[in-house]
Amino acid sequence: MGAMQMTFSDEKKPTPTSGKVKMAARDVKVFYGDNEAIHGVNMDIMENEVVAFIGPSGCGKSTFLRCLNRMNDTIDICRVTGKVTLDERDIYDKSLDVVQLRAQVGMVFQKPNPFPKSIYENIVYGPKLHGLVNSKSDMDEIVESSLQRAGLWKEVKDRLDSPGTGLSGGQQQRLCIARAIAVSPEVILMDEPCSALDPIATSIIEELIDELKGSYTIAIVTHNMQQAARVSDKTAFFHMGDLVEISETREIFTNPKDRRTEDYITGRFG
């Protein structure tokens, strides 16, 4: 370990967790056709904490993340077994509406994917669909507050009508975060949100995540171990479809229990 200098999230600001389990996974397996990609993962995610998923490429961390708001449903050959709960309700239960689930569990993707519409339209897209806004003033309010929260308001407030695709990569990603926030989700899933961004844009997003914690439960997949250390309260290490270990971030980076975790974070493979 020694040579690596890490900054840990809890050195900046303690996370006010309520100690309540927000999401839980029990024996979750994911199959692509006949191929088992995730082998029985168990995990608890506490309310308002930030969990980072780390692990080598193809270890299943993104696949698992996508189970949490059923984005895997969009892939025809993908099948999920086991149980995932949100506030103790099974999200794969037939009675649960996936639309409602995704309004509660938002998602930010690897590559910034603003819609080919104006910045304003990008933000109000979700609220309009869900019937959250009734008037122009509601919309203006939601646009301003979401962009404020995403730290983008100052940069774009004078060009809300220009296309979202015209922004820089980092701005686009913050727009996508603002878009997710606009529907007031409880959980935000982030799938390597900084992998397509330069270091400066990355640090801005990391600060943003830091701002958001406490109000939102966040699960973030990352390739970057320093990032995991900087932003997360807990870290989960995935390897070849298994959840190897999950614990306090500081614990995992300073005192990993599993040999594989240690090998990975000390850079022996990855």
Partner: peptide
Amino acid sequence: PKAMRDGSLGLGATKSE
């Protein structure tokens, strides 16, 4: 691109929306 669809579905839009 599929990313465009995912962005919308991830916000809770239905397929037709």
